[in-house]
Amino acid sequence: MIGYYVHHHGDGHRQRALAIAQAAGGGITLLGTGLTGRTGRIPCVDLPDDRLTAGSFDGADHVGRPGSLHYAPLDHEGIRWRVAKIADWIASARPRLFVVDVSVEVAMLARLASVPTVYVRLSGHRTDRPHLDAYQGASALLAPFHPDLDDEAVDAVIRGKSFYASGIGAAAAPEHVQTDLVVGVVGRGGQPSDGALWAEAARAVPNRRWRVIGPCTAPRDTPPNLELRGWVNDADRHIASAGVVVGAGGDGLVASVIANRRPFICIPERRPFDEQHCKARRLSHLGAAIVSPDWPASPQWPAMIERVEALDPAALAGLHDRDGAAKAAQWLVAMAATPIRQPSA
């Protein structure tokens, strides 16, 4: 039995957990907020919400806290019941392993409950004390990306403790590429995108069709070559059919772009620990994407489209493992089956 904690910010954590659980073929239970009805046949435990404001989460609790924690607001009923429910599940299910994707506090809770943990290590400069304590307390780390995308500043000890598994939750969609189609992708991890900016980009490159998927505001004046689709459940299919993909540096989008080998203009968004900017720098260094630190001005778009189409698709191909989820699942199952050896006195 393996427990797998799923963070509720965005949707990438859930998609990654589902891919691994499905590949394992059983024995994994997901724990997280808002999972009911969204895990298929994978068993889940729905946890009370820990957010200070319903529907939003910035990771800040605005109170003093111990230096080894990120998020510990006081007098929050949801957190009390959340902690109790996780601890109760651990006591009842007696898991051999607990995967944490991601939460320093849940990792500490599982370790305090005497369960070996695997911490999912994301991109970015995560050298603060809470992260390092969670890494130290974990039996191993799961890095859901190719090692070439890892930040060069990551300590060798942390790299050595990491199991790299790229391609988790991302599969190549067998779609016919429409070379004149630019697909803009907006995830759930941030605010709705500004439709007026997409309208400007579409006007700047009028010989291309522009389609935006994900939450986006409607511009006052929509050009005829711009289509706003809103949230879709088949984002991989849209990405696979695109001549060019434009979006931020979130895990789900980057993994899909890599899996489908699509020319990618990456406009990283601000995230804690510079997660997206670190990932974008590695993509640029490898020649796998064109990166713009800010939203491009209208005159820049035509040249950017030409530059990204000139990139070698082989740079993306080398970053994808179509068996990533299966390899991660096999590794976790093997870890759970390994006897725990207590140090001798």
Rank of each mutant, 00 (worst) to 15 (best):
Y119V: 04
P116T: 11
H125I: 13
D321Y: 07
E200I: 04
A60Q: 14
F273H: 15
Q136G: 05
R262C: 03
G184E: 01
P299Q: 05
P130Y: 02
D151E: 08
V102L: 12
G25R: 05
L316S: 08
A334Q: 15
P66T: 14
H238W: 15
A317G: 10
D323C: 07
G160E: 10
R129C: 02
G167R: 04
M335P: 05
A72C: 12
W81L: 15
R282F: 02
A336C: 11
W81G: 11
R41F: 00
K161P: 00
I28Y: 03
Q300K: 08
E105G: 03
D236I: 05
P224W: 13
R307H: 13
I290E: 14
A336R: 08
Y119I: 00
I340G: 07
V257W: 01
A240E: 06
A72L: 15
R261P: 02
A297C: 02
P192N: 04
V63Y: 00
S241D: 06
L197P: 03
E200F: 06
G3P: 06
I290K: 10
S162K: 03
C278P: 00
S298M: 08
L142W: 07
A334M: 13
G167L: 05
G169N: 06
A17M: 03
S139R: 14
V333A: 15
I267D: 09
P313F: 00
A235H: 08
V183C: 04
G243A: 08
G137N: 08
A199N: 12
L181E: 08
V118N: 09
A248F: 01
T39K: 00
I168N: 03
V120T: 09
T338D: 14
A310Q: 13
I340V: 15
V102N: 10
H7D: 06
I340W: 07
V63D: 10
G34M: 09
S103A: 06
G32Y: 11
W231V: 15
I2D: 07
A171C: 02
